[in-house]
Design a binder for these strands. Sequence first.
DNA 1: ACATGAATATTGGAT
DNA 2: ATCCAATTTTCATGT
Lengths: 253, 253
Amino acid sequence: MLRDQLLAQSPADLVVFLDEHLRSGRYLVQVVAECEVLYHGRAASVADAGDYLVMLKPDGSLQVHGYRGVKPVNWQPQTDEVWATLEDGQAVLVAERRSPEELVRVVFLETSLVQALELREGSGFVLMGTEAEMQRALARAPELIEPGLTVLDRELPTDVGGIDLFARDAQGCLVVVELKRAKATQEAVHQLARYVARVRELTGEPVRGVLAAPTITKPALAALQRAALAFREVTALPEPDAGPSQGALFEFA
Amino acid sequence: MLRDQLLAQSPADLVVFLDEHLRSGRYLVQVVAECEVLYHGRAASVADAGDYLVMLKPDGSLQVHGYRGVKPVNWQPQTDEVWATLEDGQAVLVAERRSPEELVRVVFLETSLVQALELREGSGFVLMGTEAEMQRALARAPELIEPGLTVLDRELPTDVGGIDLFARDAQGCLVVVELKRAKATQEAVHQLARYVARVRELTGEPVRGVLAAPTITKPALAALQRAALAFREVTALPEPDAGPSQGALFEFA
DNA sequence: ACATGAATATTGGAT
DNA sequence: ATCCAATTTTCATGT
């Protein structure tokens, strides 16, 4: 997978290396160097001279990593053009994209390492415990929310947003369900309240609101109760020691 | 900055290398390999055997990069423990964190490259064009929103969220301003409507609502007008050809 | 530790 | 191209 590598080369050599390996669009290129980074686009930033790891992927995406954090210091998703030039005896890398118009510029002051890697396209990847999965599972087994519930619609669009699950309860009352895969916050309560109010207006019927999530913040629970809405605990992933019914329900089919 | 590097070594050597260089907590370690990745925590995922670049930073954060995208395929922010072991003749890397309880497990099937880098702590970094900056600038020069406006408060907390700018207009009417550094969406309109309604309830006074952003989506503008709220164009960054007043206003002091 | 909200959010999906 | 909503969001900040 390692295709080529240079150690402590001259700026001119670095430019040639980058030029060659970026051109093909087949390599992931890394440069470890002391450098300065400028960004201008949706926002703008300046990073003073420091040690960074610059990663360029074959899709034109760029990221500049510091010594900590998952998030790069600077980055740029899928750019349209990437090139390297020699300016005043220094190697400079520029990545540009249109729409939005953005530019990242890296000046390499002292390069330690450059390398080109070839990563074959990844194979299978499966993610479990998403909100979409939760929604499918609860649509199939709405009794997990409450007994006697009938699901009328999923992702029902209204003029104030999409309702995750729209249902009718055992007594025939309309129910709006808002789902969260993680701890529900006040924002989720506001969303639910908005949907419930709108459905009441549109139908003239009484409407109940249920927030279904694995947990809820204390302030959110208070707001929920003030608004006469309900919380129902639902987990996105089966517990390690969950019973077979729960486990089976949320297993990936 | 490159401290150590191994090419195409045995699983046992890989484990030794990882063990040595992870222990100190001073190195950024990378492994380029064909590997499988398992994740279990807030969600769960499985990545089949494929080529990935695994990066471990000294803070315990982990990321597994594929051939495209800024976002890693798998990752883990600041873990509490990282270790490597030999299992059935294969090198295995595990990164674990408590709170939330999460685990990433990488099985290296065929390693191409391992290296340890030392990146000295970064120096100065300045970001311009944030919402906080916009807020400061507009609080100092509220006439950019409308003439005669007086700012009463910033980040004013209410029980339905924090109001970005709370003000009084030339006629003495209360004004709630919601700021967005990028294109405003319907969500911003909902937020603003909620604040305006709450302030009306609390004060009994008439209240105007203004959404200040560089642009707004078409549906959001429609919703804004239905709710009798106003849009005001405000840019987070000075235009390249902006006049001196605009430019000076938003310059980083 | 908990909660909130911004972000150059990124990314995928729907229209 | 636009717009919306999820995200293992991450991350900084305030309480």
